[in-house]
Amino acid sequence: MTSPFPSSSSAPGEGRLIVRLLPHSVSALSTITFQYPLKLISPSPSAHQKSVLVFLLTYGGGLVGGDRVHLTIDVRPNAKLSIVTQGHTKIFKSPSRDVVTRQQLRVNVEAGAGVCLLPDPVQPFGGSVYEQSQIFTLQDGASLCLLDWVSAGRTARGENWDFRAWSGRNEVWAAPKADAKARLLLRDNVLLEGDEAGSEGKLLKNNMHGLGLFGTLILKGPLLESLAAFFMAEFSVLPRIGARDFRSQEKVDKDSGIVLSKQELWRRNRLKQEQDDGLLWSAAKVRGCIVVKFGARTVEGGRTWVGSILKEEGSVETHFGEDSLMCVR
C-alpha cells in the first residue's frame, strides 16, 4: 500500500539551517529543518541577541552505532550564528568496526558573517566507531571560531581511550572566486585507531600519553582577530620549560612585593591551573588561521582553561553573545 503522506524530502539525520540578517542588524533563522536522530532547537529570538543561538542535539542524548547526522548550514552576509550542545555528544558502542557513526557538518559563511561553534566535548564510549567531518567554506571577511574536542570516554567507569576508532576532520576552505577555484586553507585531521581485539598492549592509551581530553581550536576572520592575537601573545610569554630562577633570595622577596596588574594576576592563576591540570597547549599560525591545540588530564581541566581564556579576552562574548560560551564555563 502506498503511503498517503507526501514522501519526505530529507533523509534520516539530515538537517538544514539558514541564517540571515534582518533589519536593525538582528540575525535570524530563515530555515530550520531536521530529521531523527538529529534535533535542532533555537530559543525564541530577542531584539538584542548578538547572534542566533542553536542547540545541536540528538534524540536520547547521543548517537547509536551507525547513526548518521548531516547538517548543512548557510550563513548569509553579516549574519551571526552560535552553535552549542547540551552535555557531551555521547557516541555509543558499535557492534563491529564496520558500523561507523558519522557526524558531518558543512557550513558556508558569506562575507562579513560569523560562525561560533563551541560545543561540549565528544565522548566516545568503549567500543564505539566515530567519524566526524566539519567543512567550512569562508568568503572574504567571514569569521570562524571552531572548537573540536574529544574525551577519553566514560572515565568514571574506567574507560581510557577504549573506543575502536575516532577520527575528526576540520577543513577551512576559501570560497571560490571568479578566477580561481576553492582553495584549501587548513586541514586538521586527527585519526585515532583503537587496539585490535585480543592485542595485549594498550597502544592507543600509550599514544595519548596520560591525556584525558584533546582539543583543537581554530580561529579565522576579522571578528576573531583579537582573540587570535591574544592566544599568540599568551603562547609567546609562556614560562620557558627547564628555566631556573637565578635570582637571589633578596631579589625574589623584593619582586614578590610588586603589585601585579589584573592581567598578570590572571595569567599567574591560569599558569597555576595549567600546571595543576597537566594542561599542555601550543598555538600556530597556519595560512591565515590560528590553530590552538591543547590536551589536559581531565575534561574539566580543559574546559576551565579554554573558558577562562575566552572570557578574559572577551571578543567572543562581544560578537556572539554570552550564551555562545555556555559549554565552556
Binding site: N207, R240, I241, L280, S282
Partner: peptide, 23 residues
C-alpha cells in the same frame, strides 16, 4: 592524501612547544 592525518595528537603539542624550551 586527503585522509592523511595525525595519529599521535600529543606529538603536535611536543613539537609545537619546542619553542618554549629554555635551552
Amino acid at each position: 592524501i586527503d585522509d592523511a592525518g595525525q595519529s599521535v595528537p600529543v606529538m603536535d603539542l611536543w613539537v609545537g612547544r619546542h619553542e618554549m624550551l629554555y635551552s
